Simulated scan of single mutants.
Amino acid sequence: MSTVKELIPPRPAPPQAGRPTTPARVIGGAMMLLWICLGLGLIAMMISNWDQEKFLRYGPRFLSGLWTTLSLVGISIVFGALLSVPITFGRMSSNRLAGAVSYAYVYVFRGTPLLAQLFLIYYGLGSFRPVLQAMDLWWFFRDAWYCGILALTLNTAAYQAEILRGAIRSVPRGQREGAAALGLPKGVTFRKIIVPQALIVALRPYGNEIILMIKGSAVVSIVTVLDLMGETQYAFSRTFDYQTYLWAAIFYLTIVEVLRHSWAAIERRLTQHLKR
């Protein structure tokens, strides 16, 4: 029987291999440097051209427009989520009529521009004023705010329905088979097994949809809704200072970044059990 008399002396870790310099890395670094210089230039220009009077006059209007944008998107997202549920079940239904109606809805609202949908609701339905007055609905369709909410809700419902349907379809069939083998009812299986897994899969697409809605909501300014973009256009029409649009871009970028990091934190929290 042999024994070890001498131990192998400790050795330092091998040096890490250096990353070679490639044309792609050089171009990427140059573009990053260019963007940094442009950003610093914009910041310096905004500081040098700072106008206290304009800030005091139009700052509150920007904050009011920001609140309008957030409330508009929040209401639309909530109502769109509620509307997307029956659309999702219609798309997954074996009933041909329900499937055809749901497919047509999703096809139309995903295949046409949001601006065109807004115009059809605000200007198109306004042509039927006598009918709407007879149905006591004119108070709704004469207000640009309500028309904007309706257009955004119908649009996001189509996208959310496809997100939810894809997430439900992504759950492996074995989950249903295992639940059936345990004797669980289909309703319990769907609510407590399928839906929780589907929502985790749909979490990131839902976040992307909310970000797209925040940026897409700027179209409501065309129909006289004074959201963030509407207040920006108002300030520009009074001052002819293009920095108003830079401030609007900063506001939108801040909203998107806050939402992105918040959504990433929620995703990390809900998917801790999936990490090893």
Rank of each mutant, 00 (worst) to 15 (best):
I222P: 00
E177W: 12
Q160W: 09
G187N: 13
L203A: 14
I200G: 08
V195N: 08
A161V: 07
G187V: 00
L164D: 00
G207W: 12
T189W: 04
A167I: 02
I211R: 04
T189M: 02
A161D: 01
E209S: 13
D241S: 07
L246N: 14
P196C: 12
L228G: 03
R191Q: 10
V195A: 13
S221L: 06
L184E: 01
I193L: 15
A167H: 09
K186S: 10
R169P: 03
I168R: 00
I194W: 11
L199V: 15
A218Y: 05
R238W: 01
L212I: 08
I210S: 03
Y206Q: 13
V188I: 14
A161P: 08
V188N: 09
P196W: 12
F190N: 00
V220E: 13
Q197I: 13
V171G: 01
L164F: 09
A198L: 12
S170D: 09
A249S: 15
I211V: 15
I194A: 06
D241F: 06
W247Q: 04
A202S: 08
G166S: 15
Y245G: 00
R169H: 14
R238K: 15
V195M: 15
S217I: 10
V223A: 04
R238D: 12
T239Y: 08
R191E: 12
V171W: 14
A179M: 10
G178L: 11
L203F: 13
G207V: 05
M229L: 12
T189L: 01
Q243R: 15
E177C: 08
V223F: 09
F236P: 07
Y159K: 11
I200E: 03
G166R: 13
F190A: 00
M213K: 03
P205Q: 02
A161S: 15
Y206I: 13
Q197T: 09
A202W: 04
A249F: 15
N208C: 04
W247I: 04
G216K: 01
L228V: 01
Q175M: 00
S237H: 05
Q197G: 02
K192V: 10
A248Q: 08
G207E: 11
S170W: 01
K215S: 11
